[in-house]
Design a protein around this nucleic acid. Structure first.
Lengths: 155, 155
DNA sequence: GTTCTTGCAAACCCTTTGCACGTCT
DNA sequence: AGACGTGCAAAGGGTTTGCAAGAAC
């Protein structure tokens, strides 16, 4: 879970973004960011919608989607598309520049940070004439010990 | 475009897979693989559907989706989810283990192969106790010369 | 002959959109 | 006051599913 301090910093960052882009500062937008700060994992738009409405923050899906998009635009959130249908989000500060290993047997997702990816990113961008912005690496793998993997959430 | 030779090899591989999994060998399934061999780029299920029906292979979307899924399961196709809505597929043999750089300004997709990713993959799998199967790396970047980037296909 | 696959259309899920109302500036 | 954001429900796009007819085994 992000600290209150972290969330306050992000709110300032978000406020700056909104002002710069001439979007309005609304209570709903800050509420979304507050609630995201309470979630220490990936979440889908709908999970956030249900979570917020469960907490008696009355908010619509339209606002959730729109705010998630703004938060992604300004770099506060990372948006991932894993194999499933819905996009997943998480605070970028949770684990900066981390990537995901996905077990092809059970769908479990393990987060990791491996510095080597930075040099791959730079080498490729230099070769092709681009400036890196971000990346998404997903490693699909199976565990050495299949028993560990018996959280069968899919199949 | 994959050579006829390549496609014949893949058909054998596909036939083995179908037999092993006790799925039936149908003409439609082989037709799909044949037509994919004629396409030298990423394609969506619907693009393949339109392509095949344009060639007077009468085939339904249901069969396309189901066959693409089988071909992905047996490793003949790679399935990608770029930022857009629909999944994209391509023959795995087109460019083995390549990855994609996506221009965040114009959406252009550049394919590349960088060996360094293999060691990242192995390091991570060793550390976490997995055996690598495959991976998907997308680098988001902007070109050094914005003029080169003026194929604005989105925004 | 039985079971699986196909084709079609409808259902489905996630996401976006249109519109009336509310809120920010 | 004017413009933008919100909530709701309906529409949209991609994908899956139910069912009857057809093909593989």
């Amino acid at each position: 879970m992000a600290s209150t301090q972290d969330i306050e910093t992000l709110k300032i960052q978000f406020a700056d973004f909104l002002k710069r882009k001439k979007y309005r500062s609304t209570q709903e937008r800050y509420n979304v960011l507050d609630r995201i700060g309470e979630i220490d994992r990936h979440f889908s738009a709908d999970e956030l919608y249900l979570y917020m409405n469960g907490k008696s923050d009355r908010i619509s899906r339209a606002t959730i989607y729109s705010t998630l998009d703004l938060l992604t635009q300004c770099g506060i959130l990372m948006k991932h598309r894993f194999q499933g249908d819905s996009a997943h989000f998480e605070l970028a500060i949770r684990m900066p520049d981390h990537d995901h290993l996905i077990c092809v047997e059970c769908g479990r997702i393990v987060e990791f940070r491996e510095e080597g990816i930075d040099s791959v990113r730079n080498v490729v961008c230099n070769r092709l004439g681009f400036r890196p912005v971000t990346h998404s690496l997903q490693i699909f793998a199976v565990c050495h010990d299949p028993l560990t993997c018996e959280h069968n959430t899919q199949d």
